[in-house]
Amino acid sequence: MSPLATSHPALQSLRALLNGFAQIFLQQHPGCGLLVLIAILIGAPDLLPGALLGGLTSMLIAQRRGYPPADIAIGLYGYNGILLGLLLSLKLPWTPLLPVLIITSAAFSSMLLAPWMQRMRKHDWLPAFTFPFVLLGWLMLALVIQLPLPLDTPAGTPAAPELSFLQLLLGVLRGLGQVIFLDSPLAGLCLLIGLRLADGRTALWALLGSSSGSVLALFYGWPSDGTLAGLYGYNATLAAIALAQVYRCPLVPAVGIILALVLQPGFSALGLPALTMPFILACWLVKASAQSWQQAVKHSTPS
């Protein structure tokens, strides 16, 4: 029997929760999840209660509804809820309504993910990734705009620091942190250590993804404050990690990085927060193209 099967139920739940934090970066490693949690403590400790509430809610709903225990154990029913808890805690002050919104959205994230995963496994659907988080995040943000609540927005935007190698390096680390709404380079470094703990190759691709975001943003003349804040790195980071796990050819994650960067500005034009949708679309486009190519080759090969 595995250690997980013989451990105390509370330890199983803790391990599943930590795996949920790690799954934000597509990892299945409690140590990585713990470092993600520590990164939140470093970069924005006020967001941690919402993250924990969202993760616990999505996990408990999955347990109550009888979803596969193996999926729960590896954190697949945690990361969308954690991201929703982070997003809503970032946008709203702590009022009695905030926990209600987090619990509701996190619960729905598990109920959306379960049938999607079932169809993915049976009918080869595209992976859900963080789509439940994005869809429910858009709905929640649209809802809170209609409510008479003060939004937690910064009073002013500080002037962007002068471009230098050091600032670009810090921007790359911030690109890792922006996956979970953190702009602290130290938090980004903590995340990088967590990824290295889970898998060294993944950590390298995460760095390449975030670095590519900074380089392309500078090349196209996008605002330097966004570049140095890592806002153009986080979707490229996730695309690089996700595609490098599936495809051994380095050209495939490189294409995903470019697609994520090209798609991101379009959401501003639509008036929607990008969140992680550019990463999702980039991976869907790559996977759908690969599937179409395989089908074309299969049909063109003589039997």
Rank of each mutant, 00 (worst) to 15 (best):
P158C: 03
L275A: 02
G226W: 10
A229P: 00
L173S: 15
G230M: 04
F267V: 07
S268G: 13
D199H: 14
D199Q: 13
L195H: 02
Q245Y: 05
P154V: 07
P265L: 03
P223D: 11
L191P: 04
N235Q: 15
I280H: 00
L275D: 00
A288L: 12
A206F: 06
G256F: 11
E162F: 00
A155F: 11
L182A: 05
F279L: 10
S212W: 12
G200N: 11
A242L: 10
L189A: 13
A244Y: 06
I193W: 13
L163S: 00
V252C: 01
G188F: 08
P273H: 00
C249K: 15
W284R: 07
I241L: 12
Y234F: 15
A290M: 06
L275H: 02
V179D: 07
A187T: 14
V215N: 03
A239I: 13
C283R: 05
G200C: 03
Q264R: 08
M277G: 09
G177M: 12
Q291Y: 13
F267M: 06
A203Y: 02
S292I: 12
I193P: 05
G233L: 09
L251I: 13
L285E: 01
A203G: 03
Y247H: 10
G175V: 09
R196Q: 15
Q245I: 05
I280K: 04
L208C: 14
E162P: 00
L192D: 09
G226T: 01
C249D: 15
L192Q: 07
A187E: 04
A217K: 01
T227R: 09
S164N: 11
L170I: 01
F267Q: 06
G200V: 08
Q167D: 04
L243Y: 03
Q178S: 06
S184L: 04
I280P: 02
A274M: 07
V246A: 13
Q291N: 14
I241N: 11
G230F: 03
W284V: 12
G226V: 01
A206V: 12
L166P: 00
F279V: 10
P161E: 13
A187Y: 09
T157A: 11
Q245G: 07
G156L: 14
G271L: 03
T157H: 02
L186D: 04
G156H: 15
Q178E: 14
L163H: 00
T227I: 14
L251K: 11
A269I: 08
L281K: 13
Q245K: 09
A217E: 10
A260C: 06
Y220W: 15
L208W: 01
P154H: 09
S184E: 05
L166G: 01
V255Y: 01
G233H: 13
A260I: 05
A242C: 02
P265A: 04
I193Y: 10
A187H: 03
L270C: 03
